[in-house]
Each structure stands twice: as C-alpha cells, then as structure tokens.
C-alpha cells in the first residue's frame, strides 16, 4: 500500500467514539432540525475539511458533530419520541426513496412538537442549499505560493529594454 510508517495515523482509541446509531429514515426525518441545531459544528467541520483536505486534522471537529447529533437525537427521544417515530415510519413506508411529500401531516405534527419543546423551527426547504456566512475563530491556512526552482533560468531584469520588432509581425486578418 502507499502508506509508509512515516505517515502518522491516529490510533484506534482516538478514533472510537459513540456513533449515531440510527437508520436512514430516522436520520432523514431529523435532518432539517439536526442541521439547524448543529449548524456551527457542521460548518466548522466542513470548513476544516475543505481548507486542510486531510481527514486526520479534523477529527476533533468531527467528534464535536457526532456529539452534537447524539445530543439532538437524545433530546428528540426524550420529548417527541412518538411524533418522531410516526414521521420516521411514514417516510420509511411511503416511498422507496424517503420522499417528504407523502408525509406532510406527520411532519407538521413533528415540527410543532420540536418547536414547542426544543425551540427549533424547521428551516425552509432550500435552507441548506443557500450560501451562508460562517463566523469562525479558525486561523486561515497559509496559502502555498508557486513552486520556486533553484536551477530555473533567470528571467530578464524588469527594466530590460523592449524595442519594437525589427521586421514587424505577420498579419493575417485577425492575428
């Protein structure tokens, strides 16, 4: 394999945390409220992944996300378990790809419960496709400049004379 011993890989213990042990329909049912509840963590993690492009350097942010999602679903279970399960069943059984249309009624009930208990309002349907501004304390990664080669040919000095072409240039209609 391409990985040598000099590559630092995190150990098994560092990587083992409690994962969100939920099925697809349950995740989808809570997706909109989850994204709103863990918005800062999500943005932080995705920004980290996008800037550093290395999964090893964003483990802490990833753990924060998983922790936030776990807390969110625990709260849901504590307060709106029935409404949530009804919505999940509807999403699961109504269509092969968990469409939202057939489940607007159960969704309304669930949304109302979440708003009453957790104070999270369901964002508009295109909220996560919009552009958002994220305020972060994360330092900007240094921008890597162009590669400089020591044996490259030295260019002309900036004040080198640039006389007109001695014999002009060809001209064929356009160039």
């Amino acid at each position: 394999m391409v990985l040598t011993e000099s590559v630092n890989l995190p150990t098994e213990e560092e990587l083992t945390v409690q994962e969100v042990n939920l099925s697809g329909p349950a995740l989808k049912a809570g997706a909109f409220h989850l994204g709103k509840a863990c918005e800062f963590e999500n943005n932080e993690f995705v920004l980290c992944r996008d800037e550093l492009k290395d999964p090893r350097k964003c483990l802490a942010e990833g753990k924060a996300i998983t922790n936030c999602a776990l807390n969110f679903f625990r709260q849901i279970k504590k307060t709106c378990a029935d409404e949530f399960m009804q919505y999940v069943h509807c999403l699961d059984k109504s269509s092969p790809d968990q469409k939202f249309e057939p489940c607007r009624k159960t969704q309304t009930v669930f949304d109302k419960c979440v708003k009453d208990n957790l104070g999270i309002e369901r964002p508009p349907y295109d909220y996560y496709a919009r552009v958002h501004v994220h305020q972060t304390a994360r330092p900007r990664p240094p921008v890597e400049g162009p590669t400089v080669y020591e044996d490259a040919t030295p260019g002309l000095p900036p004040d080198a004379p640039k006389p007109e072409a001695k014999y002009g240039s060809r001209y064929l209609f356009l160039w």
């Binding site: 890989l9 995190p10 990587l15 083992t16 945390v17 994962e19 969100v20 995740l27 989808k28 997706a31 909109f32 989850l34 994204g35 863990c38 963590e41 999500n42 993690f45 995705v46 992944r49 999964p55 090893r56 964003c58 483990l59 942010e61 990833g62 753990k63 996300i65 998983t66 999602a69 790809d97 469409k99 939202f100 349907y125 295109d126 909220y127 996560y128 496709a129």
Partner: peptide, 22 residues
C-alpha cells in the same frame, strides 16, 4: 428539498466515514 436533507446530514456522515476510513 431531498438534496438539502442530504446536505444537512453530510457533515455528520462524513465525520463518521473519516474515522472508519482512518
């Protein structure tokens, strides 16, 4: 709307995937 639900879940799933991958 379907896409947005995926977007909302994406960071969590990506974090989980990163750990499993490493």
């Amino acid at each position: 709307e379907m896409k947005c639900a995926s977007f909302a879940l994406y960071p969590m799933l990506l974090a989980e995937r990163d750990r499993a991958y490493l």
